[in-house]
Amino acid sequence: MLLLPFAGCSLFEDCYPLNIKSWSATKKSGGTLNLISEVDSSMKLKFLVIPAIVIPVAVGVIPFLIGLIFSFTDWNLTVPGVHFIGIQNYIEILRDSSFWEAVLVTIEFTGLAVGIEMLLGSFVAFLLSRNVRGQWFFRSIILIPLTVAPVLSALMWKLMLAPTGGVINYLLGFLGMPNVAWLSNPSTSLLSLVVIDVYINTPFVALLVFAGIQSLPLEPYEAAQVDGASGWFVFKSLTLPMLKPILILALVFRLILSLKTFDIIYATTRGGPAALTTNLHLWSYINSFQYGAIGYSMTGAAILFIMIFALSMWLIKVWSRSVSYMTSSQ
């Protein structure tokens, strides 16, 4: 039966070490079996990472470094000749009022948009987390703006915000508001862009926070219920602290991605009117492709890069602190 072969070990390979002896012998003489030696396979695995590093480096890091070099030159497409001018660009840019205006726009836009998105998104996440009938329908609806291209959503809004014949003005007319040229009016253009950005990105915050809410543990809440804690107390001392990591994560993503907003601005206002919606990212594009000042605009891009880099380093430190705080308290 099954177990008998053990005694004589005649049927199956494993019982006889003959294979082992002959295999080792072949290995010593460097036979072809060396090719399938899997002993060090884990050591060789790490080389699979190389293409994934090489391509982004080639298409991303190297151009960036080259661009940094540009920022130390006076390269302008309208003027022949390229010379090294050291940090002159950087000094000049700090005296350029258009640069500072762009910085201001960046801060205003990002601050307002992200602030609203965090609040609104958290609120929507809360709504979505309630157990009501048809919850799946609402949760799926939220996903849609996330997948539609931001440019396309911005264009949709451009259609709606038309001064005459635009449906937004029509609806607001019921509230007694006159027709406003939302995107071209200096006093409303940035605000309109904020609205568009909020529309596009709130679902992201909502989804992230919603997922965070779903993964909250039940036990603390049950304990609080037994203790008879009030709703507000529960929110302040249980929900909020436990959601902190996810909220910070959402903030990190939104802040960083918002600082480099480009497509929705370009598609709707091209940075106008009078550069009132030009943030730093768009500023570098315009200086390059409209004025040809590649070296100079690269300076702006580099500064933006440094801003984002510094901010993300700091935010990520905050985030990891909040996460370790969470896990250690468990």
Partner: peptide
């Protein structure tokens, strides 16, 4: 079985 198996991969050891 008196053979050194240090260099053998897992699938070759009995």
């Amino acid at each position: 079985d008196d053979t050194i198996i240090n260099d053998l991969p897992p699938f070759r050891r009995s």
